[in-house]
Design a protein around this nucleic acid. Structure first.
Length: 880
RNA sequence: GGGCACGUAGCUCAGGGGUAGAGCGCUGCCCUUACAAGGCAGAUGUCGGCGGUUCGAAACCGUCCGUGCCCA
């Protein structure tokens, strides 16, 4: 505990011992968060002696707002950093956003469109200014929403990919890669979005099955005719060859000849190319090098001309009747024209096939030949692959490694130029005589007649890929970089593996002399609705987490998400579950409230084990086991399991049993009560600290009340003291068994929960004698002869060596009791049958391990004695 | 078309060669002075089908069926 963490509660005054009977998150959360921030708990000091623990936020998009996916990811990251902070690490959770080139430009262009303007009306400079203005006014809503969630980020270090420093980083690495010939300019087929009017990279294309048409067209005449099939008839205007497989006997005689291309009158060659699949369709394909990536490759191999017939909007530019038609209009028009010519051999419609769409605007992608900038990924990807293969970077869960390798080992060159205005402009200048100069940071660009800068900007991912170190000041050698690089872990969704992870890996290893950007990649799944369906706005099942946070509190949303977080597996979430988590928070609240009302304390040392009751020793033993369990689960990123372990320990053990048992002790007073008050304080103190990373608000509110200290945020993370007491655990287990049995009897007998029943307890030979008051209290059993009347046992419950006799004033429901006992008897007989069968099996006795055989023997013995006992009980019941 | 997951209670999911689990939902009783956002008790499964390995399979192997995702 630090010096400052004493006696000055952040919440209500420390001496305030009564809490309202309900937890009201709305009143607690915002003020607590503001106090945490102003106290500077989340800031990271690069000059500290503490070991570093750094996590970068996978930068959210500046146009975005908090959705459940963020809430999920942030809950996990926040839990990790809060725990490490409590463990005494210098924890840095780096916040910020990326500039989302296409998305942001789209947003601002839409705004302009409402004013009847286009970006071209403003011009580049004014448009970019306008985007900055938009960012200042409406961008980055997510930052405010992160505060609602309780994200413990170092706000003073917030970064934006378009900031001066990060822009320097972009220019620096561009220059280096360029000089190392890892960046080049080339004319290739790229994925073009005719709506966004820019190239996009392979991973920004989403494929989906669309209904189209497959049209078979006869090229050439008579003996030399060849039939080709296409889903994109309009591109035939740009065909410059027909290709067949070299071994295909059907066409061998035609290879090297020319045939006439319909509608155009052009003659195009028939070429033989091994990449043509002779099994598919007619085995002949039309070749349009300017509008198809495969055709482009064929064109290269055979020196074919590339004939572009579509412009940037997807409009036909080829002279003739189709000039000016949109690509889809042109498709029908051309098919119609071919039909008139008798060229159509077959038509299949609808023909379902996979079509690429722009991930931003869903427009059908147009493969387009154009001059672009590329990253040669070969050596970078190889290093990224090797780092994982060599164990320098661990991917968690490990099963996801194969996905990583499958991607990184087959990476194509990365198209990084975008025909946008918002983004990092490529630092290359072209000269009047075809010169090309790449300008590094601080260098003067060439000036003078005819020199101009490249107009394209860089892919947003190009700057996001630098995030793990550009945010720390790179390329300068800063103390932050020295202290915090490499980051400990990147927490992100498996769907982002290809976007961020691979890019960050490639750039980190390259820029930081082979040191990877992080040591672990912890992958989580996608948030889904309560039926396991993907959330989407169009499907109408998307949920705004802020609504749930308003209704149930941030902790409830966080706990629900954490509790569903099995590594790499999708997490479904529904409102009912958030409600359940809210109930849990309220339960914690009330248990602590009870403890405070009864003088629970954290002051002074814990009494020695010898001075504690078995009940106190039991809960302390369970507490320490839970500390160990939760700690281990954190190390393995098992958020679901650790949350569940805490839920069950807190509710099932502490609240349902320890608190209930403590009531008897506290009522009795004396030294035992003092000890219990201290143990109660201890158990809640530790449990709240264990829970804090996942449910920060309610734990802070309660812990400051309980301890009177400054803040749980800077409290120590609990460590396993090693205290265990197997005997006490066994003893309490027996007690629980007896209590449960009596309660079951009462319930089956239709006794009201509050109804007191006189009972005689025979506890000799069991460890329960000392627990008699608690046992009676939990089961509402009065001492015999309570009202001065004679005790007359009407029911007898033998359980675990103890016998409980109850006086029901002769009013026992014999049928109910018979039914209850019969059910037990059936279970015991089934058990006897199963175990006897096993023990009669020679193979089992010979081959099963001894402990297993022993266990089965014990089970059979238990079943036998149960049967004897229950049979006797049944016999003792009055005849119906 | 290639690859990878996954089929366990009504729903959503853990588990994993030796007695089938959780949350929510459901049934009954109860406002027992921390909590009805609660308490107590209870019911519910041929662990997708079929074969195989094993003394023993929900788990391991094969195969089929179904679902989802990624890549082409």
């Amino acid at each position: 505990m630090t010096e400052t963490n004493q006696r000055t509660a952040v919440g209500a005054p420390a001496d305030e011992k009564t809490l309202p009977p309900q937890y009201t998150p709305a009143e607690v959360e915002a003020p607590l968060y503001e106090r945490w921030v102003s106290a500077g708990y989340f800031e990271a000091d690069e000059s500290s002696d503490k070991p570093p623990y750094a996590i970068v936020i996978p930068p959210p998009n500046v146009t975005g707002s908090l959705h459940l996916g963020h809430a999920f990811e942030h809950t996990l990251i926040d839990s990790l950093t809060r725990r490490k902070r409590m463990q005494g690490y210098e924890a840095l959770w780096q916040p910020g956003m990326d500039h989302a080139g296409i998305a942001t430009q789209n947003v601002v262009e839409r705004e302009l469109a409402k004013e009847g303007k286009s970006r071209h009306d403003l011009g580049r400079e004014a448009f970019v200014e306008r985007v900055w203005k938009w960012k200042a006014e409406s961008g980055g809503q997510i930052s405010g929403q992160m505060r609602r969630l309780g994200d413990g980020v170092a706000w003073s270090r917030e970064r934006f990919t378009m900031d001066e420093g990060l822009s320097q980083a972009v220019q620096t690495i561009f220059k280096r890669l360029y000089d190392d010939e890892l960046i080049y300019r080339a004319e290739r087929i790229i994925n073009w979005c005719p709506r966004c009017l820019t190239a996009i990279s392979d991973i920004e294309v989403e494929y989906q099955d669309d209904e189209g048409e497959l049209v078979s067209i006869r090229y050439g005449e008579g003996e030399t005719a060849i039939v080709v099939a296409t889903t994109r008839a309009e591109t035939m205007l740009g065909d410059t060859a027909v290709a067949v497989h070299p071994d295909d006997e059907r066409y061998r005689h035609l290879v090297g000849t020319e045939i006439e291309l319909p509608l155009t009158g052009r003659r195009i060659p028939v070429v033989a190319d091994a990449h043509v699949d002779p099994e598919f369709g007619t085995g002949a394909v039309k070749v349009t090098p300017a509008h198809d990536p495969n055709d482009f490759e064929i064109g290269r191999r055979h020196d074919l001309p590339s004939l572009a017939v579509l412009d940037e909007h997807g409009v036909i530019t080829a002279h003739g009747p189709f000039l000016g038609l949109d690509r889809f209009e042109a498709r029908s028009a051309i098919v119609a024209a071919l039909r008139v010519d008798g060229r159509i051999v077959a038509e299949k419609r609808p023909y379902v096939h996979s079509v690429g769409h722009c991930s931003r605007c869903k427009t059908t992608i147009e493969p387009r030949l154009s001059m672009q900038w590329w990253v040669r990924t070969g050596p970078l990807a190889e290093a990224a692959s090797k780092a994982v293969r060599d164990g320098e970077v661990a991917i968690h869960p490990k099963e996801m490694e194969s996905r990583y390798f499958a991607w990184v080992d087959n990476l194509h060159d990365w198209c990084i130029s975008r025909q946008l205005w918002w983004g990092h402009r490529i630092p290359v200048w072209y000269g009047p005589d075809g010169e090309m100069v790449c300008v590094g940071p601080g260098e003067e660009p060439p000036s003078g007649e005819g020199w101009h800068q490249e107009t394209d900007v860089l892919d947003t991912w190009f700057s996001s890929g630098l995030w793990p170190f550009s945010t720390m000041g790179w390329p300068k050698e800063t103390p932050s970089l020295e202290k915090f690089y490499p980051n400990a872990v990147l927490v992100t969704g498996y769907d982002i593996l290809f976007f961020w992870v691979v890019r960050m890996m490639m750039f980190g290893l390259y820029a930081m002399d082979g040191t990877p950007p992080f040591r672990t990649v912890a992958l989580h799944g996608m948030v889904r609705d309560q039926f396991g369906k993907k959330m989407s706005k169009s499907f109408g099942n998307a949920v705004n987490p802020l609504d749930w946070m308003d209704a149930y509190g941030s902790d409830a949303v966080r706990f629900t998400l954490a509790r569903g977080a099995n590594p790499g597996v999708d997490v479904p979430i529904g409102e009912d579950w958030v409600q359940g988590s809210r109930n849990f928070c309220n339960k914690i609240w009330n248990a602590t409230r009870f403890a405070l009302m009864n003088g629970a304390t954290v002051e002074g040392p814990l009494p020695e084990a010898a001075e504690l009751s078995p009940t106190d020793r039991w809960i302390l033993s369970r507490l320490q086991a839970t500390v160990a369990e939760v700690d281990a689960l954190y190390e393995d990123y098992q958020f679901a399991k650790l949350s569940d372990a805490l839920f069950h320990f807190a509710w099932d053990e502490v609240f349902d049993w320890y608190v209930e048992l403590s009531k008897t002790t506290l009522n009795e007073g004396g030294a035992a009560a003092d000890a219990t008050r201290r143990v109660l304080g201890e158990v809640l103190d530790v449990t709240l600290r264990l829970l804090h990373p996942v449910v920060p608000f309610v734990t802070e509110a309660l812990w400051t009340h309980l301890t009177g200290r400054e803040s749980i945020v800077i409290a120590e993370w609990p460590t396993d003291s090693g205290f265990r007491d197997a005997a006490a655990e066994q003893e309490i287990a027996v007690l629980q068994q007896v209590v449960t049995e009596v309660r079951r009897f009462r319930s089956d007998q239709g006794l009201k929960p509050g109804q007191k029943v006189p009972a005689r307890l025979a506890l000799e030979g069991t460890p329960l004698a000392a627990h008699e008051p608690a046992l009676r209290s939990l089961t509402r059993l009065q001492p015999e002869g309570h009202h001065g009347t004679a005790f007359a046992a009407t029911a007898s419950l033998p359980v675990a060596g103890a016998v409980v006799e109850l006086d029901l004033s002769g009013a026992i429901d014999v049928a109910a009791e018979r039914k209850r006992l019969q059910k037990d008897l059936d279970a015991a007989e089934k058990e006897l049958k199963q175990t006897t069968a096993k023990l009669g099996n020679e193979g089992f006795l010979a081959k099963a391990p001894e402990p297993v055989v022993e266990k089965i023997r014990a089970r059979r013995a238990a079943a036998e004695s149960d049967i004897a006992r229950i049979t006797a009980q049944l016999a003792g019941l009055p005849q119906a």
